[in-house]
Structure formats: structure tokens, C-alpha cells
Measured scan of single mutants.
Amino acid sequence: MATGGRRGAAAAPLLVAVAALLLGAAGHLYPGEVCPGMDIRNNLTRLHELENCSVIEGHLQILLMFKTRPEDFRDLSFPKLIMITDYLLLFRVYGLESLKDLFPNLTVIRGSRLFFNYALVIFEMVHLKELGLYNLMNITRGSVRIEKNNELCYLATIDWSRILDSVEDNYIVLNKDDNEECGDICPGTAKGKTNCPATVINGQFVERCWTHSHCQKVCPTICKSHGCTAEGLCCHSECLGNCSQPDDPTKCVACRNFYLDGRCVETCPPPYYHFQDWRCVNFSFCQDLHHKCKNSRRQGCHQYVIHNNKCIPECPSGYTMNSSNLLCTPCLGPCPKVCHLLEGEKTIDSVTSAQELRGCTVINGSLIINIRGGNNLAAELEANLGLIEEISGYLKIRRSYALVSLSFFRKLRLIRGETLEIGNYSFYALDNQNLRQLWDWSKHNLTITQGKLFFHYNPKLCLSEIHKMEEVSGTKGRQERNDIALKTNGDQASCENELLKFSYIRTSFDKI
């Protein structure tokens, strides 16, 4: 039985969820670079991206490699990797027998973001014989899940209580170790020597080791999670996991709180800001991140802002960003909400898709409305799209047979046209069989910064309504002859009103 693990408890099935942008060198404390989270699957090609990484700022997932063999891993080693800020997950990587050479110096898994409450997941690794993470000293947050690894031993010899604050939620089941077939031998045991430290858990006094050649490092209890030197002297209180010299914040392997210019500090002093819960960055760093993602459509890219001495992905609820200094300031009234469309555009074809934009005031991208039916549609669209004030790209209304009016965009005031449909149009209306009105132009103002209007096959939309939009939106004169079809717009509506004058002759039985 794995020490510190839980057996036999019912657990939810383990679901495996399925960018080499360097964020800056980590400095003297770390020998390499800070790398983003990685999802490495199918083959070993991307694994080489770990070569210079000291910190993975995010998670590391290595999974679904069915053609790899043990010899493929023999020359692979990433000794610079010290810390993973989120979680480490391995799933069905064939041929991998140990992690001792792959990650010989991995010391800390912070667990800032977890995989279903777990910071370390080893699942269905069919050839893994031992973990071998002999320098792993601290899992700051989260638990361990090690399950269905039929060859995995050296679990009962690990004292997880020396690595985690609590072992109650560890789930370590259905491994070879369960069948008591392992016969784990710690260093020196074969020669009758006791080389590794022994600890007591559940009444068992057991030597602690990761492999037959690597003991588990056990520091004096007084050192807590700070770690200790090879001689057993406690590291500085700002260290986490390990250090090369005692009581020196510049000799830590990793930091308990924050890293700044080669030393570990309790908090980031001005003019620095907390970033990702582990390091200090200056304003320029946060500003660069903001600008890199301002026009990016890459998933996970955030326009970072500053709030409460932190550089964070977005302002919290009730705050909006001051564009001059990136500071989050309290909103006066309802907060603006910028919604970034991942692929640059979004099609609204149902109430469900409209709900995804609920509360958005600025759309960074283009909207395509293609709704053919739905219950209580006008009210639903207004509830979900009615706060949109600005669209950076274009607005396209296409084959939306259920629409009679666009009044559900009740606050839309600006279409920038930074991206144009077919390279020309910022407003595009095609084949809307029941569209009769755009907006009530006596109450609604709309500016279209650039781009043209396109109207074709809107049989109940009168040309007068379209011409009014040209005047109000500032697009009059931009359109070419064929942009607004004269014969297919309003051709099934009563669009022309003329005053009919009647004269009559009164007659009676005795007068003409």
C-alpha cells in the first residue's frame, strides 16, 4: 500500500482533458527560462521544448504516446526543470519506465491550478516501474492521483506527508504495488545497510526511497516546507523545498512566496507586481503582455491589467481597466465587458449561442446573426445582446428569417469595421425574408467608422429604411451602385405612401 494514499474509496472516473512563447529569463536562482504550460502528445517531438525550461508557468501534460519505446527515452533528460506552477499529468506514455532521468531536479509542483483537485496525476502508464522524482520536495496545493499503472512499484516507500501538507485526498490505487509483488529495495538494503531515512506512518517504520538508488530526502521537522541542505541544516524561511546553503534567500532552489532578481522575498516591493503567484514583474512586463494579447485571437491570451499590486489576466467583477495605466478602477454604474472572439468572429444561430455573449459591452471581433427560429426570440436576444455598444469588426445579418427588427441591439452605437466582410463591408444584410426595420432612427444613433453597407434580398425592408441608415451611420456616399439592390429590397412591402385627393359631386333626387 502506498504510504499516505487512500484505498478502496469510491472515486469519480478520471477524465483526461485534452506555445513556446518565453516569458522571460528567471535569473540567477533558476538555471534556465520560464516556459508556458505545455500539452505534449502523440510523439516526442515537442518534448524537446523543455530543454531550457527551469519553470513551467502553467501545467505540463505528457500523454497518448503509443509508439514510443524505452530506448526512445534513454537520452532524454531535462535537468534544468525545477518547478511547475500548476500540475504534472502523465497518461498512456508507452515505453517510459521512470522519471528519474527525465526530470531529475523537479523540486516543486505548486498546484496553482489543479487537474480535478490533483497536482500530480500518473494514470495508465503501462510501462512505468517507478516514479523516480527523487528531488520532489513540495506539492504546495492539491493532491496526488496514481492509478492503474500495472508495473509501478516504489510507492509504499514514499512518505507523501513530507511532500504535501495533507495526504487525506491522495488516491493511489490499482498499481502493481497493490499486489505486494514489488519487493522494493532501498539503497544499501541488499548489503544489509540502512542508507535512507525511515519514518513512521500508520504504525509502520519504513525506509523512504524513490528507487533502488535514490533515497527520499527527509528534512528535520523544524525546517517545515522550506527544505534543508545535504547536511540537514534548514533553508531560509522564504525558500521552498530545498537550498544549497542554509538561511540564505539567494540560495533557495525555489521560493515559498515570490522570486525577485535572484532572491526569494515575502512580497513584491514597489515598483514590482505579483505575477502568477510566484514571481515579481515590473510595469513594462505587464504592459507588454497586455499589448501582445490586445489584437491576438490565441486562446488563453489575456490583456493583463494591474489590481491590488498584482498583474492579473482581467479586472475583477465591479472594476474596469483604465487604459492609460492598466489599473483596475471601480465602475460607475454597470461595468464594461470586452469579449474577445477566439477566431475573430462568432455566429449567433440560437439563443444558446447568444447567451455566451451575455453582459458583453464591447465585441472584439465580428458578429454573424443567422437565426431561423426560436421561442420568445426578441426578448431572449435583447437579454443577451442588448448591452453590446461596440463591435470592432463587422455585423452580418444573414438568412435570419425569424427577425423582424434589429432593435434587440438596443445599445449598439459603434461598428468600427477594423475587419470587413469580403474585404469591403462593415454591415452586411443578406436574404432576411421578414426583416422590416433596422432601428427606430428617431431614437437610435449608430456610427460606422469604416467599410460599406450591403443589402440584398431583404424583400420587406424598404429602401427608405436603408437610406436612413446611410445618413445616420455616416456611410452615405461610400456605397457603390450594386451594394444596395434596388429590386430585391422592399419588393414585397408597401414602401411608397402617396396622399390621394378626392373630389365629389353631391346629387339628390331633384338636383344634379
Rank of each mutant, 00 (worst) to 15 (best):
L29G: 08
L29E: 09
E33Q: 09
E33G: 11
V34R: 08
V34H: 10
G37Q: 10
N42R: 11
N42A: 09
L44R: 09
T45A: 13
L47W: 03
H48R: 04
H48D: 10
L50H: 01
L50W: 05
L50I: 10
L50R: 02
N52W: 11
N52A: 12
C53R: 00
C53S: 00
S54K: 04
I56A: 00
I56H: 02
E57S: 09
E57V: 07
G58P: 01
H59Q: 07
H59K: 13
L60A: 01
L60F: 02
I62E: 01
M65A: 12
K67N: 04
K67T: 14
P70D: 15
P70T: 06
D72C: 12
L76H: 02
L76T: 02
S77A: 05
F78I: 15
K80Y: 15
K80N: 12
K80R: 09
L81C: 01
I82P: 00
M83F: 09
M83I: 15
M83H: 07
M83V: 04
I84L: 03
T85G: 05
T85V: 08
D86R: 02
D86N: 05
D86K: 02
Y87G: 01
L88E: 00
L90N: 00
F91Y: 14
R92W: 15
S98K: 04
S98G: 03
L99P: 01
L99Q: 00
K100T: 09
K100S: 10
K100C: 11
K100E: 13
K100H: 15
D101P: 12
L102T: 06
F103D: 00
L106W: 02
T107D: 02
V108R: 05
I109F: 01
G111I: 00
S112W: 14
F115H: 00
F115P: 02
F116R: 08
F116A: 13
N117F: 11
Y118M: 08
A119S: 14
A119Q: 00
V121K: 00
V121S: 10
V121C: 13
V121F: 03
I122D: 00
I122S: 05
H127F: 08
L128S: 01
K129D: 04
K129N: 05
K129P: 00
K129C: 14
K129H: 06
E130I: 05
E130Y: 14
L131N: 02
L133P: 01
L133Y: 03
Y134T: 03
Y134F: 05
N135F: 01
N135G: 14
L136P: 00
L136W: 00
M137G: 08
N138I: 04
I139M: 04
R141S: 10
G142F: 01
S143H: 09
S143F: 07
S143Q: 09
S143V: 06
V144Y: 01
V144K: 00
R145L: 10
I146W: 00
I146V: 11
K148V: 13
N150S: 06
N150E: 10
N150Y: 11
E151T: 01
E151W: 11
L152Y: 01
C153S: 03
L155I: 13
L155R: 04
L155P: 03
L155N: 06
T157P: 10
I158T: 09
D159S: 11
S161L: 10
S161T: 14
S161P: 03
I163V: 08
I163L: 04
I163H: 01
D165E: 15
D165N: 05
D165L: 10
S166L: 10
E168R: 05
D169A: 04
Y171I: 13
V173S: 11
L174C: 07
L174M: 14
L174I: 10
N175T: 09
K176G: 11
K176T: 14
D178M: 13
N179L: 06
C182Y: 13
C182K: 05
G183P: 09
G183H: 11
G183I: 03
I185R: 03
I185Q: 08
P187Q: 03
P187T: 11
T189E: 04
A190Y: 15
A190L: 09
K191S: 11
K193S: 14
K193L: 14
A198V: 05
A198N: 13
V200M: 05
I201Q: 09
I201P: 13
N202K: 13
G203E: 13
Q204D: 13
Q204W: 06
F205T: 07
F205V: 07
E207L: 11
W210K: 06
W210R: 03
T211Q: 02
H212Q: 14
H212W: 13
S213G: 14
C215W: 15
C215S: 05
Q216V: 05
C219A: 04
C219V: 03
P220F: 01
P220Y: 04
P220L: 11
T221A: 12
I222V: 04
C223Y: 02
K224M: 07
K224C: 05
S225H: 05
H226E: 06
G227A: 05
G227V: 06
C228E: 02
T229Y: 05
A230R: 02
E231W: 03
C239F: 00
C239H: 01
L240T: 08
G241I: 02
N242D: 09
C243F: 00
S244N: 07
S244F: 15
Q245L: 08
Q245K: 12
Q245W: 03
P246R: 12
D247E: 04
D247W: 15
D248C: 01
D248S: 09
P249Q: 11
T250V: 07
T250Q: 07
K251L: 08
A254V: 04
C255L: 00
C255A: 00
N257Q: 14
F258R: 04
F258S: 06
F258I: 03
Y259C: 15
Y259L: 06
L260C: 01
G262P: 06
R263P: 02
R263Y: 13
C264I: 00
C264P: 00
C264H: 00
V265H: 14
V265C: 02
V265Y: 13
P270A: 14
P271R: 13
P271K: 06
H274V: 11
H274S: 13
Q276T: 13
D277S: 10
D277T: 07
R279N: 06
C280W: 00
C280Y: 00
N282I: 00
F283Q: 02
F283M: 10
S284M: 11
S284P: 02
C286N: 02
Q287I: 10
D288N: 04
D288H: 03
L289C: 12
H290Y: 10
K292P: 13
N295I: 01
N295F: 08
N295P: 04
S296V: 15
S296H: 10
R297N: 09
R297W: 06
R297E: 13
R298I: 05
Q299T: 14
G300R: 12
C301N: 02
H302K: 11
Q303R: 09
Y304F: 13
Y304V: 11
Y304T: 15
V305S: 06
V305M: 13
I306R: 01
I306W: 11
I306E: 03
I306T: 05
H307R: 05
N308L: 12
N308H: 08
N309S: 08
C311E: 01
I312P: 12
E314G: 07
C315L: 02
P316R: 04
S317F: 14
G318R: 09
Y319C: 08
T320E: 13
T320W: 08
S324F: 02
N325I: 01
N325S: 03
N325A: 15
N325K: 03
N325Q: 10
L327M: 14
C328R: 01
T329R: 14
T329A: 07
L332G: 15
G333Q: 15
P334K: 15
P334M: 11
C335Y: 03
C335L: 02
C335N: 03
C335K: 01
P336W: 13
